[in-house]
Nucleic acid binder design. Structure first.
Lengths: 204, 204
DNA sequence: GTCTATAAGGTGATAGAC
DNA sequence: GTCTATCACCTTATAGAC
């Protein structure tokens, strides 16, 4: 009973921290805000997690994990290359639609802590070689045009992430602030991105 | 002489503020840091610009202006649609290569101040209708496939901005931290993005 | 484990001399 | 216009009661 309660408090704190850090960033987040969000006292945060920096590291690592390895795995589905591409885009967009601030958070913090990414990547053992191999095979087989695998991968990820990260800009400039239009846009985007990419790389 | 000196100090402050705000964001920036960067005293900042918030607004507005209207104008060049597209991509990538933190800054702050964008957009009179018209004409003339103009515009901007905004992630994951490889990648990206887009939308 | 109270240091902003 | 000194407040972190 006691042990269970401990875990609950610890988890509550981390969940609250994720919410606050991802929304406001390290510099903008307040320990008081996290405590309020978790429904506990500020002192308890320090009891469980020694410092703000320490708590941030945990959140940051989780965020990076959610954004990279879990998604890369989605490219390991069955089917043809184009089918895998569609699954990948679908999975990626679904995840970041649910956590729209996640990519922006990681990108923002990464610019101030580049070392941490290098370290975390090493720890998480992120490897995209199998995707690169896949692409090269498709090129050799004449199914897609000759394109640098790195460029192709970045293109796909750019098309997925950017519209979500830059939501205010997209709604503001393109949709004149119309949120419904943006929602429709995002919904149709999954097939659109895949279509757009495949149309570009498919050999005729 | 006196008036000239005033202007210089004012300018020095704004330039320093741009540097510090764009790098660290509103929450992470320190007035002391800006003063140091400008080579003046902290009190002088408040003498010229009443508050941090006020100084930030000026920087934010300038940043948004640099990122949106100036670039949109680049689509008004001469030539065919595809040529205009190439000029646009080239201009956009050149600008954000010179200010790699600019898009990330705007995007990050925008998520905390969506209202400010709406207002600033209204003030800056940003209008992309002529681009939409261009695209629709190309579709009608059968030069490009039937694509939603909004999607096409966002695709191009995504492909330009994302790799620069997410530089640490790109270098970290794809290039294993190799900065030279990233530099080469960016250099070749200008033509690559245009090729990739044109290849996707051009009617066969 | 959880709370209240408070320490210790930082930050934006102002007062006042020059 | 520019500086030093200082205020008032906020924020992280800890001490100590329960």
């Amino acid at each position: 009973m006691k042990a269970k309660k401990d875990i609950n408090t610890e988890e509550k704190i981390v969940e609250a921290a994720e919410k606050v850090f991802i929304k406001n960033g390290m510099a903008g987040a307040r320990m008081q805000q996290i405590a309020d969000e978790a429904g506990i006292n500020k002192a308890l945060l320090h009891y469980y997690y020694r410092s703000k920096e320490k708590l941030f590291s945990i959140v940051f690592r989780t965020a990076l994990k959610a954004l990279l390895p879990n998604i890369i795995k989605s490219f390991k589905s069955e089917g043809s290359f184009f089918e895998k591409l569609r699954v990948f885009v679908d999975t990626y967009l679904t995840i970041i639609e649910k956590n729209p601030h996640l990519p922006g958070f990681v990108i923002h913090e990464l610019n101030h802590r580049p070392e941490q990414l290098i370290q975390t990547i090493a720890e998480l053992d992120i490897d995209i070689q199998f995707i690169i191999d896949d692409i090269n095979t498709e090129i050799e087989n004449g199914n897609i045009i000759n394109i640098s695998p790195n460029d192709l991968i970045i293109n796909v990820i750019s098309l997925c992430i950017f519209p979500v990260v830059a939501r205010p800009m997209v709604t503001g400039v393109l949709f004149k602030g119309d949120k419904d239009e943006y929602k429709t846009f995002l919904k149709e985007r999954k097939s659109h991105v895949a279509d757009f990419v495949i149309n570009s790389i498919k050999t005729k």
